[in-house]
Computed example of a mutant assay.
Amino acid sequence: MRGGILIRRSRLDITLAILKIATNGAKKTQIVYGANLNSTIANKYLTRLEDKQLIEQKGNMFITTDKGRVYKDLASELDVR
């Protein structure tokens, strides 16, 4: 919320936040807090990102894959806000 106005983030914004947080590996709790998500929504994003091979789970850690890093870098370059 900014100045009393609720600002919604796009799916891309949330995806990029998760990929950035998990670049060097992160636990689910770190992703939830770092991306400001609740556990249910984080699970949906993590499942989707794993299905697309942008992130992988090793034990209790989530790590951005090489494909995920390329995606994050390209999407960040194209973001013209």
Results as ranks from 00 to 15, higher is better:
26 A>P: 07
9 R>E: 08
47 T>Q: 12
28 K>C: 05
70 V>Q: 02
47 T>L: 15
22 A>C: 09
49 L>S: 06
25 G>W: 08
18 I>T: 09
61 M>Y: 13
53 Q>F: 14
40 T>D: 06
71 Y>C: 03
55 I>N: 04
32 V>D: 00
76 S>Q: 09
56 E>G: 11
26 A>L: 06
5 I>W: 00
80 V>A: 07
28 K>F: 07
52 K>L: 15
2 R>A: 04
42 A>G: 06
43 N>G: 08
81 R>A: 12
25 G>A: 09
68 G>N: 11
6 L>N: 01
39 S>E: 10
19 L>S: 01
38 N>T: 13
26 A>W: 10
15 T>D: 07
3 G>Y: 13
66 D>N: 12
24 N>F: 12
73 D>P: 03
80 V>W: 01
39 S>L: 14
36 N>Q: 13
51 D>K: 15
15 T>P: 04
52 K>V: 11
14 I>N: 10
67 K>W: 01
6 L>Y: 07
34 G>C: 03
72 K>C: 04
64 T>D: 02
39 S>M: 09
56 E>I: 14
56 E>S: 12
15 T>M: 08
11 R>E: 04
50 E>M: 15
12 L>N: 05
41 I>Q: 01
11 R>P: 00
27 K>L: 10
7 I>A: 00
14 I>K: 13
76 S>R: 02
66 D>G: 15
26 A>D: 01
69 R>G: 10
11 R>K: 07
17 A>W: 04
27 K>Q: 09
27 K>R: 13
43 N>M: 06
53 Q>W: 12
49 L>H: 03
76 S>D: 06
58 K>F: 11
43 N>E: 12
20 K>I: 02
24 N>M: 07
13 D>P: 06
35 A>N: 09
16 L>W: 03
75 A>V: 00
40 T>Q: 06
72 K>M: 02
23 T>N: 00
74 L>Q: 07
76 S>M: 11
58 K>H: 13
32 V>P: 01
15 T>F: 01
80 V>R: 02
14 I>M: 10
28 K>L: 10
63 I>T: 03
15 T>G: 04
40 T>V: 15
63 I>F: 03
2 R>E: 05
